[in-house]
Amino acid sequence: MTEADFDFLRALLHQRSGLSLSQDKRYLAESRLGMLCRRRGIDGLSTLVQALRPGTDLLLENAVIEAMTTNETLFFRDRTPFDLFRDVILPEKLTANAASRTLRIWCAAVSTGQEAYSLAMILDEMAARLVGWKVEILGTDISSEVLEKARAGIYSQFEVQRGLPIQMLLRHFRQDGDKWQVSERIRAMVELKPHNLLLPNSHFGQFDIIFCRNVLIYFDVPTKAKVMAALAQRLTADGVFVLGAAETVIGITTTIVPDKSHRGLYRESRSSNAQSAGLGLPFDRTRTPTLSSVRG
């Protein structure tokens, strides 16, 4: 791949998806886009770039973004965020939202669905405490390919053995040969939609909990700040933000700050549970009533 072609692809990926591709990731671009070329019968990377340059083939642009996006995920990945969800966040929200009896959760980079279904399984096992509640889990991802897999909810034997307790496999999956499908009940708890984190998101409404794990690491600092700002606008005043274990808000935003008691959780800086309340510059947000804009 020529320098000019690589520069073009870097600019395209950054502009369209926020992905920050450093010079040392050139091998990754050559490998993944090389596979894309072979799948589509394109005779090389320079031909691919030539086809992209006019900026008119949006489907091909999407295919390039999908090929360059890392979609690795697991059920109950890193475990702690899910323990915190069950033991800290949910009890807090069940008290705080007792009047409205609504709970809205957004998995902002849901990939092939394991994170959203892990949350749904936890909620299903607490069903007795959620009688009469309206609980919504929205899962979004930039890649329509991974969303298709998430919708099907079919996973290999390897995928269901990494992080998923066997009792949950027995309770919530149906076996079909060497594949395992998430039960219809659990799948029905999760709504899946395509969404680019750089684009407007107000149509999704407000959320009590936002999971956005292991995606910011692929962005440069200005893009991280932009994405965090956009997500923060969707968080209710006492909402909880969950980032990946290797991610931080330091140097990116002062609007979302670490929870003072629970590592890995973040809150709006004005929240009483925020570590550095008062240090941030809260957004001038216009709150829409919870659930008002996403039905249908």
């Binding site: 034997q157 390897f158 053995q161 990494r162 992080g163 066997i166």
Partner: peptide, 12 residues
């Protein structure tokens, strides 16, 4: 469920 690898054993 066999086959297994280190990651699966560690996870379980």
């Amino acid at each position: 469920m066999k086959p297994f690898d280190k990651e699966i054993v560690a996870s379980k």
